[in-house]
Computed example of a mutant assay.
Amino acid sequence: MPSFPDHDLQPDWCRGDLSLQLHADDPDTVLHALRDIARHTPGRNAGSPAPRKPT
């Protein structure tokens, strides 16, 4: 992700992992959001399995 104009990024804190928590009343909404995020994430591992539908 590129830095924003006013950000003062510290190199020691960059290039790490990102954790997201997705929540919705309907599991299909969560799955759609997860797939949309994965589809628009550049450089993701193309060999990763597709996300499974929450139960």
Rank of each mutant, 00 (worst) to 15 (best):
Pro54Cys: 01
Pro2Gln: 09
Pro51Val: 07
Thr29Gln: 15
Ala38Gly: 05
Asp6Leu: 06
Asp6Glu: 00
Asp25Glu: 04
Arg39Gln: 11
Ser3Gly: 08
Gly43Met: 10
Leu9Ile: 00
Gly16Val: 00
Pro27Ser: 03
Leu22Arg: 11
Leu9Glu: 04
Asp25Lys: 02
Ser3Gln: 03
Asn45Thr: 08
Asp28Thr: 12
Asp6Asn: 02
Leu31Gln: 14
Asp6Gln: 05
Pro51Thr: 09
Ser48Ile: 02
Asn45Asp: 15
Leu9Asn: 02
Leu18Arg: 08
Ala38Met: 06
Leu22Pro: 07
Asp8His: 15
Ala33Met: 12
Asp12His: 05
Val30Arg: 07
Gly16Pro: 01
Asp8Leu: 14
Ile37Gln: 07
Pro11Gln: 07
Leu34His: 09
Trp13Leu: 15
Gln21Arg: 14
Lys53Asn: 03
Asp25Arg: 05
Leu22Ile: 13
Thr41Gln: 08
Trp13Cys: 00
Gln21Asp: 13
Gln21His: 14
Thr41Pro: 02
Leu9Thr: 04
His32Lys: 14
His23Asn: 10
Pro5Ile: 02
Gly43Ser: 08
Ile37Leu: 14
Leu22Gly: 12
Gln21Phe: 11
Thr55Lys: 08
Ala46Asp: 15
Pro11Cys: 07
Asp8Arg: 13
Gln10Ala: 06
Asp25Ala: 09
Ile37Glu: 05
Thr29Gly: 07
Arg39Glu: 13
Ser3Leu: 00
Asp12Tyr: 07
Pro2Ala: 14
Gln21Tyr: 11
Ala24Gln: 08
Ala33Arg: 09
Pro11His: 04
His23Met: 09
Leu20Ile: 02
Asp17Glu: 07
Asp36Ile: 07
Leu34Gly: 03
His7Asp: 06
Leu22Val: 14
Gln10Arg: 12
Ala24Ser: 14
Pro27Gln: 05
Gly47His: 15
Pro51Lys: 13
Pro49Cys: 07
Arg35Tyr: 05
Gln21Lys: 10
Asp36Arg: 13
Pro42Ile: 02
Pro54Ser: 01
Gly47Asp: 14
Arg52Tyr: 06
Arg39Ala: 15
Ala50Met: 11
Leu20Met: 00
Gly43Ile: 01
Cys14Pro: 00
Trp13Glu: 12
Trp13Tyr: 12
Met1Pro: 12
Arg39Asp: 13
Asn45Pro: 01
Ile37Arg: 03
Val30Gly: 11
Asp28Lys: 15
Ser19Asp: 04
Asp26Asn: 06
Leu34Phe: 07
Ala24Val: 12
Asp26Pro: 05
His32Gln: 15
Ala46Ser: 15
Arg52Ala: 14
Ala24Gly: 12
Pro5Tyr: 00
Ser48His: 09
Pro49Leu: 10
Ala50Gln: 12
Pro2Asn: 08
Pro54Gln: 05
His32Asp: 15
Leu18Met: 10
His7Tyr: 01
Pro49Met: 06
Asp6Met: 03
Cys14Lys: 03
Trp13Met: 13
Trp13Asp: 11
Val30Trp: 10
Asp17Ala: 03
Thr29Met: 09
Pro54Asp: 01
Asp26Gly: 00
His7Leu: 02
Asp17Gly: 06
Asp8Gly: 02
Asp17Met: 03
Thr29Glu: 15
His23Phe: 08
Asp26Ser: 01
Arg44Pro: 04
Ala24Leu: 10
Arg52Trp: 04
Leu31Cys: 10
Leu34Tyr: 08
Leu20Ser: 05
Gln10Ser: 09
Thr29Phe: 07
Pro49Gln: 09
Pro5Asp: 07
Ser19Met: 00
